[in-house]
Write a protein that binds this DNA or RNA. Sequence first.
DNA 1: GATGAATGAGAATTCATTCAT
DNA 2: CATGAATGAATTCTCATTCAT
Lengths: 200, 200, 200, 200
Amino acid sequence: MPIIVDKDRKRRDILQAAMRVFARDGYHRAKMEAVAEEAGIGKGTVYEYFKSKTDLFLVLHDHMLAELKDFYMKELAGIQQPAAILERFIAVAFQTFRVWEPFFLVFFDFWAEGGRGEQQALLQTRLREAYAVARADVAAIIAAGVKDGSFRCDNPSLAAASILATLDGLVLQWLCDRDAFDLDAMRETLTQGILRGLQP
Amino acid sequence: MPIIVDKDRKRRDILQAAMRVFARDGYHRAKMEAVAEEAGIGKGTVYEYFKSKTDLFLVLHDHMLAELKDFYMKELAGIQQPAAILERFIAVAFQTFRVWEPFFLVFFDFWAEGGRGEQQALLQTRLREAYAVARADVAAIIAAGVKDGSFRCDNPSLAAASILATLDGLVLQWLCDRDAFDLDAMRETLTQGILRGLQP
Amino acid sequence: MPIIVDKDRKRRDILQAAMRVFARDGYHRAKMEAVAEEAGIGKGTVYEYFKSKTDLFLVLHDHMLAELKDFYMKELAGIQQPAAILERFIAVAFQTFRVWEPFFLVFFDFWAEGGRGEQQALLQTRLREAYAVARADVAAIIAAGVKDGSFRCDNPSLAAASILATLDGLVLQWLCDRDAFDLDAMRETLTQGILRGLQP
Amino acid sequence: MPIIVDKDRKRRDILQAAMRVFARDGYHRAKMEAVAEEAGIGKGTVYEYFKSKTDLFLVLHDHMLAELKDFYMKELAGIQQPAAILERFIAVAFQTFRVWEPFFLVFFDFWAEGGRGEQQALLQTRLREAYAVARADVAAIIAAGVKDGSFRCDNPSLAAASILATLDGLVLQWLCDRDAFDLDAMRETLTQGILRGLQP
DNA sequence: GATGAATGAGAATTCATTCAT
DNA sequence: CATGAATGAATTCTCATTCAT
């Protein structure tokens, strides 16, 4: 079914284009025309693939999260020890700071929009679920460590929330000012701090 | 005999109104007319006090930060021990989660806009400076603890950055989902974690 | 009656200010506030002296024309010979080019507005009357010359109209481009041409 | 398959509509919506063809001048004798009084705006160039007459400036008051006067 | 009288979306 | 399917005018 593949490909292209444009201009300032141009297609064509700007935004959220999760899965695959997984997890997070910069700039918009449940109920739901999943994933790693005795933690979900929060907060701070702190030093210090905090 | 009006007072009123409206609708969706209405004045009057929507936004940023800082100063006044200051600092931060909810929703917009230096260079600069000041303030507390031997920390600025990041990230997560975690439990765990991390 | 004199004085000041501001910015772009500022008074005070912007504009027209006529009267007083009067009249017109530059810039607006009878019926009427009076005045000079045998002219009113037209057109051209022609050369040539055209 | 539209045709339609609306209401009073309505299109469509109201005004100036020049070229084509050309030139000018009435009303606005170099530098430049070209064209006719001995004139450019000025001034006067003078009588008298003034 | 703070009608401009081709 | 011309709702900002003091 080559047609389906083709449509899917184009859909993906538009999403990529949207990410770049939204990252550059911000969701509200970004024009659908700019997205189309970036994707190398006509303005009207975007609407063949996405119902509206909001829809595109929503789908982009899912798409980006899926890509991010894929990335993590690949990078974390095969590691056995919970501590090693956690260390690698943090390292990957710091990698994304640099590599996925546009990704996070768009996330600023997701946060800003999702914070207003009234206006963007669907996005807020998505954001909640995404956070819940992420917390669960990280909590699972911690729980595994607790189980095998390498970690000590009364509330893995809470710990997961705070780890995620720290990483979010760091990308926020770093994207506002690349000189806020040294990425490598921060990664090392943070890793040590978190692992020590989980020590039995 | 010109009409005597407390221009400063009115300016503040408009800023308060803007905060509420921006918090509710988001900066971009918010209409200047809505701000005026919220302030109980006419549309044109807003422009007597602020040059433009952008200007209002910018001034609001400074105003909100100043208020926040005031709040912290008052709450932290008189505490002597660095560890006590830090503990109280975190506690105050968690207080603000609930009380200053609109404040943080608007901050989402500051971050989203400030992340785009191209569009909002002035805001970005403001954001950078604000972060730098906050880091310096927290770092100073830590450094004081290092000096009096109650803390051990190789890089207070780095530690400050990560503490601030965690708090930012938590408010982000919590505003997206009030059920993400229990505020009190998180505060306690986090406080312990941070203080233990700084133990000599 | 010093009060009346005072009010009259202020009225005149406002008119002068309006002329300068209208000349600089154009009638439509000019703000009433700028007129007030130029006159050194408060914005509201202008409305104590003039009902509206349109009213101010209208009165300014009359005021400027009266001043112009005064100027001509003084300069032409005492000259006896029709040819000498006409020559002097043209010379005075050229003088005004330089000296009354703002005056004519405002006249551009009178013409532009007065051309639209629908919008500015009163101004159009004023403009018509002013032109009629000017034509009659110049025609009278020519008629005097015809009477005393120094001129020959079948239709003094028509000749007057064309003389006035030439002067208007020249100021128009000159204010658009000060290098369009040399004022002195033009004055001489024009004077000769007109006088020769009226030679018996 | 994009919709095939004669963009040039539509552009011209909008310009024609703008001319009518600007002539009726004046540039500043005219609303872009009125222009759109007159052109039978939507408000936003005008902006697909012209960047702004100012841009539309500027392009209209060039467009109108080009049309006027075309008209003159056609009417003057094939005439050989300088005196005949000049006579015809004046006759055509008087024709335009009646036929191109909206044209000249809009020109009032060009003059009023162009006189303020600060506000409308581009228009002023255009106006200057247009005048310079017109002077050169008329001067060339006179110079040709001087060359073949049919005219005598020391300064054709100066003469051209004054001829153009007279015509401009007459249209100004006539549009303010259609009863100011009889067009035909004026044309005849003026033609005679100018030709006599150029007699060897 | 004088003032300038307040106002809101009004206008330019933008841009998501539609739809004829 | 793809396109981009057309659209008008929506929004920012301006400024003449009013009126309480």
